[in-house]
Design a binder for these strands. Structure first.
Length: 260
DNA sequence: ATGCCTTGTCGCACAAGA
């Protein structure tokens, strides 16, 4: 079972590229972020025609997450627990049944947090605290569980082509990196780093200043595996070539293959 | 240092992204 995450930066603008990648990669489950669409406007029929079940947690103009799955999506939960006042659509969670039992997964779009000094940075850190608390509860269930998405965190200097350029950015602050590390240390395996320690392994390249052509990227889209999910892992990958397609998102798909 | 691009918005410039 291949399960992927991809920040598509707007479903309307990516209505050709996303199906093209689905046909090529044939993932079983896809976690989409930044659909920038309300639920009613999400083009579910396009994906249903490709054999996917669709669940969305949308918002007008910004944010928004969605799940595509060839197997039925069960026990869907929308929104990150812990703050009823939070109206930003950044989290959706569901389960599928497999030959090796149920697999549960959360699709997240973690706040960017820039600029430092604004209210956006503490919002990011608070959101991370809520994510970590929720993740701890899921880990205690001792079942296959994955947290996939755009974390907006550069974990380590090796995860940026030019780490010095990010020292004043919310994505690379010690607080952001520390909370991400705390999350992993709850007991997750970070899939991509378990598969490769190669530098130059990025998932995002800015649209500006020829970042893609220069491979001036960062690695901010991650897949975390509970121990029970990690036991099932066959491999993982980053479909970097998609960044070179016409009208691309600035992020590319990241995926894991599970024996499930 | 700033903008570099791209997206969505009841647009005719702007906010937000990372």
């Amino acid at each position: 079972m291949k399960i992927a995450t991809w920040n598509i930066n707007g479903i309307k603008a990516r209505i050709d590229v996303v199906p093209a990648w689905l046909r090529e990669a044939e993932p079983d489950i896809v976690c989409l972020q930044e659909i920038k669409s309300v639920d009613e406007a999400f083009p579910a029929a396009v994906f249903e025609a490709l054999g996917y079940n669709v669940e969305t947690h949308g918002q007008k103009g910004f944010n928004g997450v969605a799940l595509l799955s060839k197997r039925p999506l069960e026990d869907v939960e929308r929104g990150l627990p812990g703050d009823p006042e939070d109206v930003q659509a950044r989290y959706i969670e569901a389960s599928v049944s497999s030959d090796n039992g149920a697999v549960r997964f959360g699709c997240l779009y973690l706040p960017n947090g820039n600029p430092l000094g604004s209210e956006k940075f503490p919002y990011k850190l608070g959101w991370m605290d809520r994510l970590n608390a929720h993740a701890a509860l899921r880990l205690a269930e001792e079942v296959p569980f994955l947290l996939l998405g755009d974390y907006n965190v550069i974990p380590d200097p090796i995860d940026a082509a030019t780490p010095d350029a990010w020292t004043t950015d919310a994505l690379f602050q010690p607080e952001s990196r520390g909370k991400f590390r705390e999350l992993v240390h709850l007991g997750f395996t970070e899939a991509v780093r378990a598969c490769t320690d190669d530098p130059g392994t990025y998932t995002f390249w800015d649209y500006q200043a020829g970042a893609w052509q220069k491979n001036n990227g960062i690695r901010i889209d991650h897949i975390l595996l509970s121990p029970q999910a990690n036991d099932l892992i066959n491999g993982c990958g980053i479909d970097q070539h998609v960044r070179g397609w016409e009208k691309p998102s600035d992020h590319v798909p990241v995926w894991v293959d599970l024996a499930a």
